Computed example of a mutant assay.
Amino acid sequence: MSKILLHLDTDTSIKALQTALVNRGHDVTRTPNDWMALDASNETQLLESTNQQRCIFTFNIRDFLVLAQRYPNHYGVVLASQNSWSLSDLIAALDCMLTETQAVDLIGQVRWLNQWKR
């Protein structure tokens, strides 16, 4: 079983979020980086995350629900409503997801981060 590799899309690309998760031992990237331009489209972000075998986390619910159906071979799309989360709650829920869930469990899946909210 392998651990989830996570990518924070443009909407969730909070440096403090990435740093907190990396400091907890998780493999987390964010837009921008060496394989993802800052101005990458949502479609590009999903496809490049998939190429990197990474689950993507986003607040962009509407677009990513459509993209996840269009490209069903992704490594997971995790959605959250931006106004419902503080930074500390995001860190806790994502840490829980990354600790308790195997990568294989998210392949082709769309999940709500609320599932891991404590």
Rank of each mutant, 00 (worst) to 15 (best):
Q115G: 01
D11K: 14
M36V: 08
N83V: 03
R30T: 00
A92L: 06
D34L: 10
Q115F: 00
S86F: 05
S41D: 02
I56G: 11
T29W: 00
T31V: 14
F64E: 01
R70I: 04
M97L: 14
D27M: 03
L46T: 13
L98P: 10
R111Y: 00
P72C: 12
K3M: 11
D11M: 12
Q82Y: 04
L47P: 02
T99P: 04
F59H: 12
E43H: 07
A37E: 12
S13Q: 01
F59T: 09
V110A: 09
R70F: 01
T29H: 09
Q109R: 14
P72T: 05
L47R: 10
K117V: 01
K117D: 02
E100F: 00
T44V: 13
W116S: 03
D63I: 04
C55H: 02
D34H: 14
D105I: 03
I4L: 09
W35C: 11
T19E: 11
R54F: 03
I91N: 02
I91G: 00
A37N: 08
D63P: 07
N42I: 03
I4F: 06
T12C: 10
R111I: 00
K117S: 04
Y75V: 02
N73R: 13
I61V: 11
A16N: 08
G76D: 00
L8R: 05
E43L: 10
D39M: 12
D95A: 13
R30C: 06
I107Q: 14
R54C: 06
T58S: 11
S2F: 04
I14R: 03
R30P: 01
Q45R: 07
T99M: 07
N33M: 05
A103R: 15
N114T: 07
L87N: 09
M1C: 13
R30L: 15
I107R: 15
E43M: 11
L106S: 10
K15Q: 12
L65W: 13
D11V: 11
S88G: 04
S2N: 12
C96K: 15
E100D: 12
Q45D: 15
S13D: 06
G108T: 02
